[in-house]
Design a protein around this nucleic acid. Structure first.
Lengths: 390, 390
DNA sequence: CGATCATGCAGAAACGTGTCTGTCAACGCG
DNA sequence: CGCGTTGACAGACACGTTTCTGCATGATCG
């Protein structure tokens, strides 16, 4: 007690280095308390508001949160006093009391040592943007949490739920989260028996089949695939869809796989694909940079696009609208996916009865450009400002 | 013990008001504890671990946090029991008690209604990735918080500090954060008297001057600029640097400005720039998509790159390595910026004495490719700083 | 051999909020 | 006039952790 008084007294004078040492060593705790309490610089608490407004803590809480039954006069008065004091409720205390933090995790499974995959930049960025928008429109904020991050980070943040992008089979992080009772919504249909609350995905098989049909319609006789060596769901489903299509139409599969997280390997693999003796006359690249890589490789081999080689790649980038020639792309609609994932997650968090299915399939969009149209009727110079070709 | 068992039994039945009265009246602390804790679905707390290990709460806390003075045997025992119970400390409680949440905000100033700007995707994605890596390497997680988000979101998350990307003059969010005593580190030199804790930035003027010299060295006589209509620091500094350079070398400025957040407007502006009567023979585009836009526009007007038109744009995208021709780009090194910003912020949070300056300038990198080399006898990389400065 | 000290651990006070419970006054009604 | 009812508010507890203080128990030293 006397110690407190002593230190408080000292605080009234400019603290010398000696005092600071003494403080941190001895009564650091009490001091900060006296600081925050004594209407000093520390943030004002609900008690200060109650005292300043001449009401009880309950009344302040009810007035600010719109609960209880209070006359409007009291409510307004409290609000005004709170504003005047610059009162901000402590998020930590509120979270502790209510059990809701207003935070949802955005988890990205990684393949290298980086938090998220390089080749999925455009997709991830668009998806994250949409997810962020959707989340904060409903009063939530997003926390970026790579699946391979240190464990203490995971346990140090209070999450109401998590979005998992493309979880791997039996993802330990996901199972741990579910075990804790947290809602988990995945972007990408969960493999195996991963117990997610809900998931959103494209129909990758249908998209690939559709795309291959489109190429075949354009005159392709042997369609090649540029795919990845990773085992994520997207790569796996797309590749098997390709193989199935090949079997159906009786074409020998022609594909090259490369580690998708390595940006240089893509160019090499594209080159390899076009250097094969059974060179394809059309190629679909699963990853974003494949378009320019394939275009460059085609140029090296003197192949004209689309005359000698039809080209399609999966990308969200707008650069393919202005390449020479413009390249047909498959869009996975990351904006719609990000929005849907967050909506589903928040519905689960807030206990909204999801009478609908907890699985949601977002349609893909094939943006047809010159690179996949063998004989376009006009080869004239296209008008300057036409965002959509044909 | 018998009391606990009794109440646990009763909890299996719907509790009557009488029991609840009796409980709250009689056994205050212990009873409610037994109520919430009776090894039911709720997560195990530190008390459960203490009870199961036969030690006190203090011992558990000290053992798990590596504090206090405990024999290794006790420490190991407690750890093991905690693991067995699946104990995870409550982040909210810890934050409330310690005042540190381990969360840092990643704030993006926006120009439209979207959380972050479209044209800065690649830059933002790289920067965010590096920032995320750096943060979690030091035990922190990142929260995405657009500056224009609802106020309740801001006050609902306990932040230890914030990174602000390119804050506008007198940003109300930043001043509010600083007023709360939170460390704020900005990516981009703060305009006006914005009281940030530290900032990291490129030397945009030097980068632009260097780049223009490079173009002039390659033979450019009239260099045009594709810039934005927004007033952010990057656009402003780059544009004035261009104007200053023009004045210095006695060239009439030739530039077109467009709303950078509109992806279509860029193509139109590029076209407009090349359609001018005083058509430039070299162009620098400030934004990422300008490269492909300018290339497409040049093609429409029958201009060969680099023979008739030299091209440089500011971009982090790798597609420009494989365009026809490859385009010289200016990289702002977002990875280094993201890392530096987070390091500075965490240093400030943890009170590390920053003996060094709180301002950090990251050098840019001009990646010279074919598009800016008029007549290159060979593909030697020209040194960044050309000796012929004047 | 008693005083001192280091050691190992338990008790309890906060952190700041939400909310359950209870009190006091006013009021309508028989 | 008494009594149940309702409105407006205050008191107090609990969320789960960290940490300061304090009490034992043995060991060490004067």
């Amino acid at each position: 007690m006397s110690v407190n008084a002593c230190i408080c007294d000292r605080l009234d004078h400019p603290p010398s280095p000696y005092y600071r040492l003494a403080m941190t060593a001895a009564g650091k705790h009490q001091v900060s308390r006296a600081q925050t309490r004594g209407s000093r610089q520390g943030r004002a608490g609900i008690r200060d508001v109650a005292a300043a407004a001449g009401v009880s803590i309950t009344t302040v809480s009810d007035a600010l949160n719109g609960k209880g039954r209070l006359p409007d006069a009291t409510r307004r008065h409290v609000r005004e006093v709170a504003d005047r004091l610059g009162y901000r409720p402590s998020a930590a205390a509120r979270t502790l009391r209510t059990g809701k933090s207003g935070l949802i995790g955005l988890t990205v499974t990684t393949y290298g040592d980086e938090p998220f995959t390089f080749t999925e930049f455009a997709y991830f960025a668009e998806m994250a943007r949409a997810a962020t928008s959707a989340a904060l429109a409903r009063g939530y904020a997003l926390v970026i949490l790579p699946a391979t991050s240190r464990h203490d980070v995971w346990s140090n943040v209070a999450l109401d739920g998590t979005v998992v992008i493309d979880p791997s089979d039996h993802d330990p992080v996901v199972t741990e989260l579910v075990r804790q009772g947290l809602p988990v919504v995945s972007d990408g249909r969960p493999a195996g028996t991963l117990p997610v609350t809900a998931w959103v995905d494209n129909d990758h098989e249908a998209a690939v089949l559709d795309l291959l049909d489109h190429l075949a319609d354009a005159g392709a006789r042997r369609i090649g695939l540029l795919t990845g060596t990773t085992t994520d769901t997207y790569t796996r489903l797309s590749t098997t869809a390709y193989l199935n299509w090949c079997e159906r139409v009786g074409q020998d599969p022609v594909y090259e796989a490369y580690p998708a997280h390595d940006p240089c390997a893509g160019a090499v693999a594209a080159d390899r694909l076009l250097a094969r003796p059974d060179r394809p006359d059309a190629v679909y690249g699963l990853f974003d940079p494949n378009g320019t890589d394939l275009l460059a490789a085609a140029r090296r081999y003197g192949l004209r696009v689309p005359d000698d080689l039809l080209l399609v790649c999966c990308s969200e980038s707008t650069v393919y609208a202005n390449t020479e020639p413009p390249i047909t792309t498959l869009s996975l609609k990351p904006r719609r996916i990000g929005t849907a994932v967050v909506q589903l997650l928040i519905d689960a968090i807030e206990g909204v009865d999801t009478d609908g299915p907890v699985e949601q399939v977002i349609p893909t969009e094939l943006i047809v450009r010159t690179s996949s149209q063998r004989r376009s009727p006009r080869t004239t110079v296209s008008p300057p400002r036409s965002p959509a070709k044909e």
